[in-house]
């Protein structure tokens, strides 16, 4: 009995402190929330993913998210280079989506204040379509997109 009561108190205390940490914004560097979620990555509906990622928000289109290495015409869909630069303050999350891919969500980057909001990667694209990048900064959601024409798809089939 005594043991279980001790456990109970321990649990209550840990939950309470967690709540305090999150409410004060202490843990909210984004890194604490960086769990790999199967539902996001396995989903095939673009709109569903957006609704799950950020329910009830307005997306603001912003030219401050720049694609500096993404080609307008990609010869090989298996390797499409992309470099994202955000001229926004306190970006803590960058998400890459490719609308026409079988699984549109490509990657989520969780950034702490110790890194600049600049990310380079290489992605696969099944066919020509839009590449969308979403950036979360100070509670607001910004996005920008660019159309890429793909000659040979790179997602198998």
């Amino acid at each position: 009995m005594l043991k279980s009561r001790r456990n109970f108190i321990k649990k209550v205390l840990s939950y309470a402190s967690y709540g305090w940490l999150t409410s004060t914004g202490f843990l909210y560097s984004g890194l604490a929330k960086a769990q790999w979620t199967k539902e996001f990555f396995a989903a095939s509906n673009y709109q569903d993913i957006l609704n799950q990622l950020f329910p009830d928000v307005t997306y603001i289109k912003s030219k401050k998210i720049k694609f500096s290495r993404l080609p307008r015409k990609a010869e090989n869909g298996a390797i499409v280079p992309i470099k994202i630069t955000c001229d926004l303050e306190n970006v803590h999350k960058i998400i890459i989506l490719v609308r026409k891919n079988p699984h549109p969500l490509i990657a989520e980057f969780f950034l702490s204040s110790a890194v600049a909001s600049e990310v380079t990667a290489r992605i696969k694209m099944a066919k020509s379509g839009d590449v969308t990048v979403i950036a979360e900064a100070e509670g607001k959601i910004y996005y920008n997109k660019q159309h890429v024409k793909v000659t040979v798809g790179g997602c198998g089939g």
Binding site: L31, A78, A107, V115, V119, A121
Partner: peptide, 24 residues
């Protein structure tokens, strides 16, 4: 100290290449 993390799936190219910018 963990400064960033990344979640991804099979849509990142084979032999992934990334560039990040650390401040300082």
């Amino acid at each position: 100290v963990k400064v960033m993390s990344c979640n991804m799936a099979g849509s990142i190219s084979k032999n992934p290449f990334f560039v990040f910018q650390l401040i300082g």
